[in-house]
Amino acid sequence: MLRGQLRRQSQGTAGSATHARVQNMVVFSVAGQRLAARTEEIGGVLPWPGTTPVPSDTPLVTALVRYEESCLPVFDLAAKFNRTVREEDSLCLIVKHVDGPLAICIDAQVPSLHVVPRSELQYQSGLDPDIAGSCVAGDEQLPLINLATLGVASRRST
């Protein structure tokens, strides 16, 4: 449902002078934790299909969800923030991860799109490599999460 909006927004802004000065962001929440992410790191939003647990030693990657003809790995972003998401009232955020598509269970509230001036983005390297910094979107100061490298950066830093 989000894919069409993302495409239209990207076509509308591509090549324009303002493109360089703004960043398209998606704001969503995971178990009540509000987060912002770059739109180019998101592949779409679907109803949560339910998971198949995988007995895994990989931190936060412990399930598969059905997607089209196959399955996607699930990154438990709620657990990363020591929270629990109610799967029955959830959406599935498809992430364009560097290792391949990834699913994240997010709250049922449909993600919102924001055009954020780059001046409102603050990149900083903190303790959590999955957090790129923060941004102001819709009058909210939100953590900016690196969806495309979720888990990868954490692993390198340990």
Binding site: T52, V54, P55, S56, D57, T58, V61, L64, R66, E69, S70, C71, L72, P73, F75, H97, D99, G100, L102, G151, R155
Partner: peptide
């Protein structure tokens, strides 16, 4: 198994089918 699974589960599990 998708490459995001990086632990010992790769030895235990060869993959999946739907």
């Amino acid at each position: 198994l998708p490459p995001q699974f990086r632990g010992q589960e790769r030895e235990r599990l060869l993959g999946f089918f739907v």
